[in-house]
Simulated assay, not measured.
Amino acid sequence: MAVLIVPSSGVKSTDWQARWESQLDFVERVEQPATRQPHLDSWLETLREHVGQRPNAVLVGHGLGATAIAHLAARHPDLPIRSAMLVAPVDPEARTAFAAGHASFGPLPCDPFPFPAFVVASRTDPNMDIERARIFANMWDAAFIDAGNAGHLDADSGLGDWPAGLDLLERLAAFSTPPRRFAERFPARFSLH
C-alpha cells in the first residue's frame, strides 16, 4: 500500500503528517508548489502527477490538501485512487482570513467521490464549520468522523503521532472499491486521542 500525504500550506514539521512520513516506509509527501501563495490548478496538476506515479494510493490530506483532494475527485474521477482521508478540510467560502487568502480553492465541489473516503472534522476548527463539513461529507458519500474539540487537527492540537488517525487509515486502506453507501459503515463519532 502506498500513502500520499497531501499537506496544507505552511504545515509545521512536527505535525502528525511529518511523523507518519518519517516513521512509515509506505508514506510519501506530495510537495506542492508555492505553498505560501497556493493556487488550486497548480496543486491539482502536481497531485495528479503523483497519483499517476503511485496508482491505487491512499490519499491523506490536511487543510488545503484535503480541499485539493475533493477538487481532484471532481475534476479527474478516473484517476486510480484507492481511497482518501480528508482531515480538517478548509472551506474556501468561510469568513476567515485564511480562507479569504485561498479563493482559488473554492467553491468546494459537491460530486460524490469515486472512491471510499473519510472526512475528519473538529467542532472547533476555525476553517470549516462542523455542520458544513458534515454536509460536504454526505454529498461526497464519505464517512464523517466527528473529532470533537480538536481545533484544526494540526500540530497545535496535540495529536502527536496520532495513533487513532493511523487506525482510521488502516480501516480505509482495507477497501479497494467503494461499497454502496460507504459512509454508513462507520460511526459518526470516533475517539481521535
Rank of each mutant, 00 (worst) to 15 (best):
M1V: 12
I5G: 06
P7Q: 06
P7R: 09
P7C: 08
S9E: 13
G10W: 14
S13G: 02
S13V: 10
W16G: 02
Q17W: 07
R19Y: 02
R19T: 07
D25Y: 01
E28G: 00
E31Q: 12
P33S: 08
A34S: 14
T35W: 15
T35I: 09
R36I: 01
R36N: 09
Q37F: 13
P38V: 10
D41T: 11
D41W: 00
S42W: 10
S42Y: 09
L44A: 03
R48H: 13
R48T: 12
E49P: 00
V51C: 06
G52W: 00
R54F: 13
P55H: 11
N56C: 02
A57N: 07
H62Y: 06
G63A: 15
G63N: 12
G65V: 06
A66D: 09
A70T: 05
A70F: 01
A70N: 06
L72M: 09
A73K: 01
L79M: 13
P80V: 01
P80A: 14
R82F: 03
S83P: 00
A84H: 06
A88H: 08
P92K: 11
E93M: 13
E93V: 02
E93P: 00
E93N: 12
A94C: 04
R95G: 03
R95A: 14
T96A: 02
F98M: 10
A99H: 08
A99D: 09
A103V: 12
A103I: 07
A103S: 15
A103F: 09
C110K: 12
C110P: 00
P112A: 11
F113Y: 05
P114M: 08
P114C: 05
F115P: 01
P116G: 09
P116A: 11
A117D: 08
F118T: 05
F118M: 10
V119C: 13
V119G: 07
A121R: 06
S122M: 10
S122G: 07
R123H: 07
D125T: 07
D129R: 07
I130V: 15
A133S: 14
F136V: 00
N138Y: 11
N138G: 11
M139N: 12
W140K: 01
W140R: 02
A142V: 05
A143I: 03
I145N: 08
A147G: 04
A150P: 00
A150H: 04
A150G: 14
A150Y: 00
H152N: 13
L153C: 06
L153Y: 09
D154Y: 08
A155Q: 14
D156K: 14
S157V: 03
L159Q: 05
G160R: 05
D161Y: 11
W162E: 05
W162T: 03
D167K: 10
L169P: 01
L172Q: 06
A173W: 04
A174M: 03
F175G: 00
F175H: 14
F175V: 07
F175P: 00
S176C: 05
S176L: 02
S176I: 06
T177L: 08
T177E: 15
T177V: 13
P178K: 15
P179D: 11
R180M: 10
F182M: 10
E184W: 13
R185F: 08
R185D: 04
P187R: 09
R189E: 15
F190S: 04
S191T: 14
L192F: 02
L192Q: 03
